[in-house]
Design a protein around this nucleic acid. Structure first.
Lengths: 341, 341
DNA sequence: CTGTTAGCGCGTTCAA
DNA sequence: TTGAACGCGCTAACAG
């Protein structure tokens, strides 16, 4: 256990007081150029590394930012984690990764822990049941940015996907190809994205003058099994849909499986559109068309917003509780084709 | 910016000294049952939360553990991140997630930062070029556990996959099915896993008395493109192999694509065996047989080992520089079949 | 069993 | 421009 080099050691070696050393290394021009350079040199020679804890205790900042997601399996969360941690690091922050499994209780303890660690900020995909805790954080001066999901119970800066528009665009794309019976597999209606994607689907139908048929919609948990079940259910109908819109990303694998097990060929026998792009879709054959929800852009913007508020002289909390939406993009590949006339 | 409740506030409210309050809340039985309970109550009433930084400054522990991986795209890393963070949290630790992109320079600054944050321990998939830095950490009393890859330049506790055996078992499986020409797509030979999997493949061939044919091996970077290129190269031969072993996990997508674009049907036209199990393989149709390298077990063991050494009274550094291997498992699904007689 | 005292390493007053 | 002194909040000596 080698003892660490402290500021006092540096000061002693340079024959100055600790405070002078501190100022010199801070480099705010509060010391003469010469001593500044000299101390700089001695510090590196000695291998001095400031003690983050002592500094934090004094300055009340840790350069730590909490990053809370439900899991790392979902592509959006994965991208979020990668992008956020890269962006934070570029500005001298470190990400504290926490996984809640979409469980409010785990989320609660996570937020407590992060508070204890005195994080400077928080990027979180909320379950929606701990808004109060988040509000306390924000009120105490720790900026909180929500992503992917909104916490309805409280006003916080939030970065979301433009799910209503995305689902609308996707559905309209299928409609424009001539499809009239479009099966929809979508997320739980308790979630923002689940509701919003369904509403986008409905609106597109409405605009096209096609009556909404609830039996064409299969809503379920974010799992492959949901896709398989939905796929089977929709395929077993007498009036089988000519297109499937898998707007619950996790279910895509199950949908592909369901199609394959019935030897239904995409896009010859049925058109398939998925949601949230992942490399697998582009590498698939036929390559799967998708509505890209813009996970990258969401992550970047969330990082931007938080970092912005982390900078000195940030606006007061309440004034910034804005909501941002990342536009969705339709990426046409080879899994959708015009319906036979 | 609401001011935090400090230990002094609690002590004052209970009309005891700060140190008594500290002891009572620590709960080591160093105070009377009654005051302990009383302080406990008052603390929660006041919403007291200990200041991690002050405590860390004093105790020289942070209950922070660095977790360093190359990315979150690779399934093993993803599992590693999820498992490790869960295990750590269960023992009151927090994971500091860092991503190096397999870049030694980024790894170097990452290790420095983590050192500055005074992490209590480190779980890292090393690039192999910063062994010295890791050795310093370990020497200074911070346990370091390497996973997935070994840093050859230094002796550190390391948890690896049993890649030689895994590749051996996979290859032998194909041999037992009667395959004699087995194409191998494998990782870069600069990496441990790349080398070890190739050696396992060779050994299986050798035991079966089949001469090694270097032209059946395609080694490359950990990307889908590698699989596509390798697949094309192997498929364009006159004496096309009857089986493909995609032992570079990232390349699997590319292999599947390469097969599809030539309308080669698995397993009718060719057998396919992949490496590292992911849900996608099981959901695929036909379901892909794999050599499961045991990412979960690796993660659990790495967490175990580190936590073990984090507990008070851990063994001296040098004595514990052991290497662990997680056995691979062959999971037979539907992508391999006996070669036609 | 409890209170007093003394730092942990740093930034930041206040004087010089 | 520099130094001395103080305190951030906590734990751990040492007394009592």
């Amino acid at each position: 256990m080698q003892t660490q080099v402290t500021l006092r050691d540096v000061a002693r070696a340079a024959k100055v007081s600790v405070s002078t050393a501190s100022r010199a290394l801070a480099g705010g021009g509060l010391t003469s150029k010469s001593t500044e350079a000299r101390l700089q040199r001695i510090a590196t020679e000695l291998g001095y590394r400031p003690n983050t804890l002592a500094r934090g205790l004094k300055t009340r900042t840790t350069r730590l930012v909490g990053l809370v997601v439900h899991n790392l399996t979902n592509a959006s969360f994965r991208v979020l984690a990668e992008v956020v941690q890269r962006r934070l690091r570029a500005e001298g922050y470190q990400a504290l990764l926490c996984i809640t499994a979409d469980d409010p209780e785990q989320e609660a303890v996570t937020i407590e822990t992060l508070t204890d660690q005195r994080v400077d900020g928080l990027i979180i995909c909320p379950t929606g049941r701990n808004g109060a805790l988040l509000a306390v954080l924000e009120a105490n001066g720790t900026p909180v940015t929500c992503v992917v999901r909104r916490d309805e119970t409280v006003e916080l800066e939030t970065v979301l996907a433009a799910d209503p528009e995305g689902a609308f665009a996707g559905t309209r794309h299928l409609l424009e190809l001539g499809h009239r019976r479009i099966g929809l597999i979508v997320g739980r209606q308790e979630t923002t994205s689940g509701r919003e994607r369904l509403s986008g689907y409905r609106r597109a139908l409405e605009e096209a003058g096609i009556p909404f048929d609830a039996s064409l919609v299969h809503a379920g948990r974010y799992e492959p099994e949901t896709g398989l079940a939905g796929c089977r259910q929709l395929l077993d109908r007498d009036d089988r849909p000519s297109a499937l819109f898998a707007a619950n990303h996790e279910s895509s694998l199950g949908v592909l499986r369901g199609l394959a097990e019935r030897n239904i060929v995409v896009p010859d026998d049925i058109s398939l559109l998925c949601y949230e792009d992942v490399p697998g879709f582009a590498w698939q054959r036929p390559a799967i068309s998708v509505v890209d929800s813009g996970a990258n852009a969401m992550a970047e913007l969330a990082a931007d917003r938080l970092l912005q508020r982390l900078r000195p002289g940030a606006a007061p909390p309440a004034a910034t509780a804005r909501e941002y939406r990342i536009g969705a993009r339709l990426i046409q590949r080879q899994s959708c084709r015009p319906v036979a006339p």
